[in-house]
């Protein structure tokens, strides 16, 4: 996430088979990347980005607060925005958004997120064909986020 704007961007590193051994692969990154000049590609919900130089620094709790503050807290409004955007022929068909939830839990075996207004969304791994499933990792969240009683 771009902590300045709250936009979620994408980095892509293409390694054609024929040249793969000459191209360094990207890896996951667990720090804050401080970037003097960020280039954002033309795009839609999650435009691609790249840069030439960056300075890493450790993540602090205030950074996570910024992520939380940028996350969408009103699920109904977000669903409306996403649906409206999907109508455009050139829309990104798998837009990525951060959600700010009040609680998460299982309802009838399904993973459900609820916002402050009580709006609920069912979380699944559908649609992300080239990505491994990840919803089950939410089970490792701190138990304080989970509310399974009285649903």
């Amino acid at each position: 996430m771009n902590l300045n704007t709250g936009r979620i961007h994408v980095t892509q590193n293409f390694r054609p088979y024929k040249a793969a051994k000459y191209i360094k692969s990207d890896d996951s990154f667990f720090q804050i990347a401080q970037i003097k000049e960020l280039c954002v590609y033309p795009g839609d919900a999650n435009p691609r980005m790249s840069w030439e130089g960056m300075i890493p620094r450790p993540i602090e709790s205030r950074d996570l607060e910024r992520v939380r503050a940028h996350a969408r807290a009103d699920f109904a409004a977000l669903v409306k925005d996403v649906k409206a955007n999907l109508k455009a022929p050139l829309a990104d068909k798998q837009p990525i958004h951060a959600l700010q939830f009040r609680r998460i839990g299982h309802v009838d075996g399904e993973l459900v997120w609820e916002d402050a207004k009580g709006e609920r969304l069912v979380m699944t791994d559908a649609g992300m064909t080239e990505e491994p499933a990840s919803s089950h990792l939410l089970d490792f969240f701190r138990a304080t986020y989970w509310k399974t009683r009285s649903w």
Binding site: Y17, E37, L38, V40
Partner: peptide
């Protein structure tokens, strides 16, 4: 299309083999 002095936090990362494009693609989201 430039933004100055940006801070980024990576939220997800995945590498996959795109057989149709004949290339590996490393994708970060953040």
């Amino acid at each position: 299309l430039l933004q100055a002095d940006v801070e980024l936090l990576q939220l997800a990362f995945n590498s996959h083999d795109d057989v149709a494009r004949q290339e590996f693609i490393d994708t970060g989201r953040g």
